[in-house]
Amino acid sequence: MARYTPPEQSKAGQVFDIAVVVVAIFVALWLPLKLGLAGAAKSIDALDAKTWEALGQNPTMASIWEKLGYTPETAHDIIQNRFHYIIDWPTLIIMAAVLIGYFIFLFRASDREYRDVINEKFGDK
């Protein structure tokens, strides 16, 4: 099989490619932060009675909270800040489809490229 000779890349082309990668990295990491997508669904289940018992803390726990400098009032927002795990099926299905599609594309495209590599490496021996 004929050996593939890649084109030499110009200096400007190299700089441009680096810029593309950097911009892509920043967009990928920044955008979720900007759009507020990052972070889990947590919300405070407010209680009226702000005592250690009402917050479900036994005397040992209460003494530790106090050692750490908390009162039932200040600890309330920490203790009652709970996750609400809801399985949102459409999102889950989209996520699974995106992930599986991504991996299938990766392995198939890689395999095509890999066959070239193997042909060139071992073909002319």
Binding site: V20, A24, L31, L37, V98, Y102, F105
Partner: peptide
């Protein structure tokens, strides 16, 4: 990750997918 950061995961995979096409 889906239970906490599902949309972030989709965004990340979308990034990897696009850069793979590139």
């Amino acid at each position: 990750i889906f239970l906490g950061f599902g949309s972030q995961l989709i965004a990340m995979v979308a990034f990897y997918f696009l850069i793979s096409l590139w």
